[in-house]
């Protein structure tokens, strides 16, 4: 047997923990504090078996949206049309924006694309994305003889 490093193992252990903590904090800090997200802003919930994504898309109809899934990548694109208004109208204030958008995000695991459920209610899109069967962790039971 030989020693790989002269650093006492306790320090190595501390360093490893520190790295782990840093990674945890960057992963779980809300994204708004890290960098401006691209449109639309999303909230994402996950458990072992599925992911739920919500996005506020006021004024969009289901037909205005295009959702595609390629294994673990989700792409959401669409367009918000400008307000239909009479010709003689003049704007006093225009804060709502419109235009087109595309956003792709990497999901934590492969998705069963055929079983994705997308619902639109009061301008909020909810996506229910189940984990692909082949990607689920397998529990191995130990046989006793």
């Amino acid at each position: 047997m030989f020693r790989r490093s002269s650093t006492p193992s306790i320090w190595r252990e501390m360093e490893r923990m520190q790295r782990e903590m840093n990674r945890l904090f960057t992963d779980y800090t809300p994204a708004r504090y890290r960098s401006a997200p691209s449109y639309p802003a999303m909230n994402l919930w996950a458990d072992e078996e599925s992911v739920i994504i919500r996005a506020e898309l006021p004024g969009l109809k289901p037909d205005d949206l295009d959702i595609s899934i390629d294994e673990g990548d989700l792409t959401l694109s669409g367009r918000r049309s400008p307000e239909e208004m009479p010709k003689d109208a003049t704007y006093h204030r225009q804060e709502r924006n419109y235009g087109s958008f595309t956003r792709s995000i990497r999901l934590p695991f492969k998705i069963e694309a055929d079983d994705v459920e997308a619902t639109m209610k009061n301008g909020v899109l909810t996506l229910m994305l189940p984990r692909a069967e082949e990607d689920k962790p397998k529990k191995i039971t130990i046989k006793t003889q």
Partner: peptide, 23 residues
């Protein structure tokens, strides 16, 4: 809520984005 205001000959119009609210 983000709002637009515009005026026509007959009306003033307000448009407000309020996603996630029930009618």
């Amino acid at each position: 809520p983000q709002s637009d205001i515009f005026e026509t000959e007959e009306n003033y119009h307000l448009v407000l984005d309020m996603p996630g609210v029930e009618e």
